[in-house]
């Protein structure tokens, strides 16, 4: 290790958040995963949440490696199984914030069944999917999100399968927070992650991101910058968008935004409510009495309000700054 490496490891603004001893990471130049990790780190810092109570679970694949780099309790699991591992972790230790970061192939191919059931249960976890339309680590194969006609190594003559529209799937399965951005929209990703931290229930954030080495190249779409240009041209933020209308065709328009935010008791709340109704004071999950549970719920609700206020305040400030810049620019 040379001095520059050492300095980098100690002085990097990410040193607090990443396991710097594991740098450099494995991701390719132009890959969108790094943006998501940055936005995640930013969201963690800005929301000022206790990093000791934050855990990351990943599956297998390029995005699956996120768990290995974040300086948090982190579990790098089997292919597609991050969500049930996260479910066990959250239920065993409900004070944790549990975030799943994984790819489209992992979460929606091999792990699709787990996704739909965790959403159905309104399991109180955050799922961030880096959707690059391909299996990167194994060499660019077809995933359940690959648009029709796109070339993958297992559809060398172009894809003829119907892809999933992930926000629509999440919404239909019962997710109570659903958003989509592209890796160009780092600030929006950060904001969404913060909202998801504050949200009680199953939160799903899809980030469309380039796989430069495989998807971009195989489809002659240029490099990472070309991908960002495509997002800039074709990605549209909308209000009140129906998740039925957000499917993505090959290089088509990408509709973004926060599509769903609704209140519904989480799995854990439903368990507590049901058992407390039936068993009364005899119900003490992990030894916690009813007053203790209520106190905890109250504290968490306060924390959510505090964090939401912080978020809104900062949004207002940023908006003001943006407007200011524009005015000066003009």
């Amino acid at each position: 290790m040379n001095m520059n490496d050492q300095t980098f490891r100690v002085e990097s603004p990410m040193a607090e958040f990443l396991r710097m001893e594991r740098m450099p990471h494995i991701w390719c130049p132009g890959c969108g995963i790094g943006t998501v990790v940055n936005s995640f780190a930013e969201a963690v810092k800005k929301s000022n949440i206790d990093m000791d109570k934050l855990a990351v679970v990943s599956g297998i694949g390029c995005t699956g490696r996120v768990a290995g780099y974040v300086k948090l309790d982190s579990l790098h699991t089997t292919h597609g199984r991050a969500i049930p591992v996260a479910t066990g972790l959250k239920l065993a230790n409900p004070e944790l914030k549990v975030v799943v970061v994984s790819g489209d192939g992992d979460l929606f191919g091999i792990g699709g069944n787990h996704f739909i059931h965790a959403a159905r249960r309104n399991m109180d976890i955050v799922v961030i999917c880096v959707n690059n339309f391909t299996y990167g680590m194994t060499g660019g194969q077809l995933t359940p999100t690959t648009p029709q006609t796109a070339n993958a190594s297992t559809t060398p003559y172009g894809n003829y399968e119907y892809p999933f529209s992930l926000p629509f799937l999440a919404d239909a399965c019962g997710a109570t927070y659903v958003a989509r951005w592209t890796s160009l929209h780092a600030r929006n990703i950060t904001k969404s992650i913060r909202e998801a931290f504050n949200h009680k229930g199953f939160s799903f954030i899809e980030v469309i991101a380039p796989c430069t080495t495989l998807y971009q190249r195989r489809n002659r779409l240029g490099d990472g910058l070309d991908a960002l240009n495509y997002y800039k041209e074709e990605a549209e933020v909308g209000q009140e968008i129906d998740t039925r209308d957000v499917g993505i065709d090959f290089q088509s328009e990408i509709r973004m935004g926060r599509f769903v935010k609704r209140d519904k008791p989480t799995y854990y709340e439903a368990v507590n409510e049901r058992y407390a109704n039936v068993l009364g004071d005899d119900y003490q999950l992990y030894g916690m009495s009813k007053p203790e549970r209520e106190e905890k719920a109250r504290r968490e609700a306060e924390e959510r309000i505090r964090m939401q206020a912080l978020l809104e305040e900062e949004e207002a400030r940023l908006l003001a700054e943006d407007i200011g810049t524009d005015e000066e620019g003009v």
Binding site: P84, V85, T87, G88, L96, H117
Partner: peptide, 20 residues
Amino acid sequence: QMEDEIASVAALIGAAWGGQ
């Protein structure tokens, strides 16, 4: 009750590291 036995053992791994 998980969605299948794959998820069952996965949940056990999460829960064991959650302290149970």
